[in-house]
Computed example of a mutant assay.
Amino acid sequence: MNTPTARQELRQRLREQRAAVPAAQRIGAAVGLLEQLRQLPELTVDERIGAYFAVNGELSLHLVVAHCWRQGKQLHLPVADAKRQLRFARYTADTPVQPNRFGIPEPQVAANQLVAPASLELVLVPLLGFDRRGHRLGYGGGFYDSSFAFLQQAERPATPLLVGIGYSFQEVDTLAPESWDVKLDLIATERELIDCTQA
């Protein structure tokens, strides 16, 4: 599972599977995801939360975002730079957004309003696949791994807490991590909240 070809084949299979999810199931999954995340104490106590815009069939965070806004949380969405680094922009209902070069909507804010990943307390991370040990199969760009590389040297869980978000069918038995991969602390699906720190 650690060869580039095997990873690409798994990415393709999971993309196709995710794209085939019917609309009614997507809506139900968004409801289930919020129920699972509400079990997470950090969603209640943390103030600075990183999230993402769901694209290409990703499990939607729209109900989670609305819940966080109702709780007075500061929501931040990623903004990618040319060096494969993410910084995060405060996101409110009034924030203008525009697709980046990958077609992913990004908040349009001044550069001096972007915050570093380390300044967040809780980050909801998109993924293509995962295993219960907290290994994440991303999209191959390395943006999250490079941006949160500082956590590799930290005693986990640390700040920010990394929570992978995906459908339950995106679970695989095992993913062999690369040296640069940053583990997830937890994974939330529409069905359960998985604590990867015990694995």
Rank of each mutant, 00 (worst) to 15 (best):
Q108D: 08
R132N: 08
F148M: 10
Q85C: 13
D145H: 05
A89Q: 03
L114I: 10
L162E: 01
G140N: 07
H67W: 15
N100E: 13
R70L: 13
V97M: 14
W69G: 01
T95V: 13
R70F: 01
H62P: 05
Y144G: 01
A82G: 07
Y139Q: 15
Q113D: 15
A149L: 02
V163D: 01
R84G: 03
P117L: 04
G134W: 00
A116N: 11
A89I: 03
A154N: 11
S146N: 15
A80P: 14
F88V: 03
F130G: 09
N100D: 15
G103Y: 10
A110E: 15
E121I: 00
P99D: 06
V115A: 03
Q153L: 10
A118F: 02
N112E: 15
A116S: 15
G103I: 09
D81R: 09
N112C: 13
R132H: 10
A80V: 14
G140R: 00
V65F: 12
L162D: 01
Q108E: 10
L63G: 00
E106R: 04
R133H: 08
A93C: 10
L61D: 04
L86Q: 03
F148T: 07
H76I: 01
N112W: 11
Q153I: 07
A116T: 13
D94Y: 01
F148H: 06
L137I: 09
A116V: 11
G138I: 08
R136T: 06
S60N: 08
R132T: 05
L128F: 01
P160Y: 09
R156Q: 11
H135D: 14
H62F: 11
A118E: 15
F148V: 05
G140D: 08
F88N: 00
T92W: 09
T95G: 02
G72H: 11
F148G: 06
S119T: 14
L162W: 00
A111W: 00
A116Q: 15
L137G: 10
L128G: 07
V65M: 14
K73D: 08
S146Q: 14
G134T: 03
L137W: 09
V163W: 07
D81K: 04
A89E: 02
F102T: 02
A110W: 03
Q71Y: 01
S146D: 12
T95I: 13
